[in-house]
Write a protein that binds this DNA or RNA. Structure first.
Length: 273
DNA sequence: TATAGTGTTATCGG
DNA sequence: ACCGATAACACTAT
């Protein structure tokens, strides 16, 4: 389930398997996933064109289209995957990262399908229907991508306000691409309690968060997704901190289930090293 | 069998 | 207007 690294994998699936092929048909009839358009609107806008470039910012993807066509926006939601099927229906590419229990070739939950003129297909496979497909998505509303943001911009984004710092890390308008698991990893690595208000984060702590973000995003991109991050296996009832062995504890922060080290992440910002 | 969940958006109440 | 909490989406995993 996708955060920035998984979405980047999906983007590369599109890039290596779907660009510059002529679109012959589009199934946009799932009006929950494909909106706010009426069924057929996306089809009418795409048939006869080609996808030319696949972009990503945070967890959002979008493709330019040929001939002055609209931009095709794709968001994977919580359970979406991009899958390329061959002419015979066999699965050619479902991405390099962890796929849960999904069996290649299982297209039961295809919510949006582009069929190319050779019969091959690009599908958004999304059991929970939390993904979204739309034309001309509002990409400019997103903050800078977490994989490339500079330190100054990052520090500005995560400090200030009375909202818990984890909530700021998760706010896609401030920094784009950090999800619940990346946020827990970043805060654990930086040894900061997730509930500390943004305006109590010191500049030293903000710099630690920046480095942890760069490290965690880079490691997840390299190692196969956010589930490979060090703290993730310890987000469980009998989990212990891999650094000091203290019990991991959990609660709700920023509306999401949050796990942290009971010893290293309890201090308020003014007490931190 | 029951519950929680790697995401986002709208809505409600303070 | 800001902020947080909640529901909704529909299926899977524990």
């Amino acid at each position: 389930m996708p955060e920035l690294p998984e979405v980047e994998s999906a983007r590369s699936v599109i890039e290596r398997g779907a660009l510059d092929r002529v679109i012959a048909d589009v199934d946009d009839t799932d009006s929950w996933v494909c909106r706010p358009h009426r069924a057929g609107d996306i089809r009418a806008a795409l048939v006869g064109r080609r996808l030319t470039v696949a972009h990503r910012r945070g967890k959002s993807m979008w493709c330019d289209t040929s001939g002055g066509g609209p931009v095709l926006g794709i968001h994977l939601g919580m359970s979406g995957k991009i899958v390329i099927a061959g002419v015979d229906g066999g699965e050619i590419d479902g991405g390099d990262y962890w796929e849960g229990r999904r069996v290649p070739g299982d297209y039961r939950w295809a919510r949006f399908t582009i069929t190319f003129d050779d019969g091959g297909r690009l599908m958004l496979v999304d059991p929970r229907r939390l993904g979204r497909v739309r034309l001309d998505p509002p990409v400019e509303a997103l903050g800078p991508d977490a994989a490339g943001i500079g330190q100054a911009a990052f520090v500005r984004a995560v400090t200030g306000g009375i909202t818990p710092v984890k909530g700021r890390l998760l706010d896609q308008h401030l920094v784009a691409g950090i999800g619940n698991l990346l946020a827990d990893q970043i805060l654990w690595q930086a040894k900061i309690n997730p509930a500390v208000p943004g305006d109590e984060i010191t500049s030293a702590e903000a710099r630690r968060l920046f480095r942890a973000t760069r490290d965690a995003v880079g490691a997840a991109l390299r190692d196969g997704g956010v589930h490979t991050l060090p703290i993730i296996a310890h987000r469980r009832a009998d989990g212990r901190c891999p650094r000091d062995g203290a019990p991991m504890v959990h609660g709700t922060v920023g509306g999401r289930t949050t796990w942290w080290c009971s010893r290293e992440q309890v201090t308020r910002s003014r007490d931190a090293a």
